[in-house]
Amino acid sequence: MAEPTPRVKLPKSVEAGVPFTVKTRITHPMHTGERHDSDGELVPRRIINRFVVSYGGEVAIAVDLEPAVSADPYIQFEMAVPESGLLEFQWVDDDGSVYSLQKHVDVD
């Protein structure tokens, strides 16, 4: 499997306290553990099971994911920040891998 690649899209700049949209996606097959490959072998479950976004070290949003989430999990949410700061994104894989990304939020 290719190394999962996370992507996050934020507005270029935001206003203090005004909600903005955060779009996130990571390339990942999200193997459900229910499917068989072309040889008839069961493909073992392997999914992103948790997604956490932190701002200033505090959890902003946490999501627990089940195999019913689509491949290349896409999650979009709205948040507001009081001042410029660092948003940290983490995706946790069933195999223990953690994929991370950081984005700076610039408040006008």
Partner: peptide
């Protein structure tokens, strides 16, 4: 949750104070 997949769970969102209690996600049915 769903009632027609092999497993009923889909996702659980926990919102901190900075995040609006809404979310968009793509799911398998």
């Amino acid at each position: 949750f769903n009632d027609g997949n092999p497993n009923p769970g889909v996702a659980v969102f926990t919102f901190g104070p900075l995040v609006t209690p809404e979310a968009t996600i793509r799911i398998r049915l």
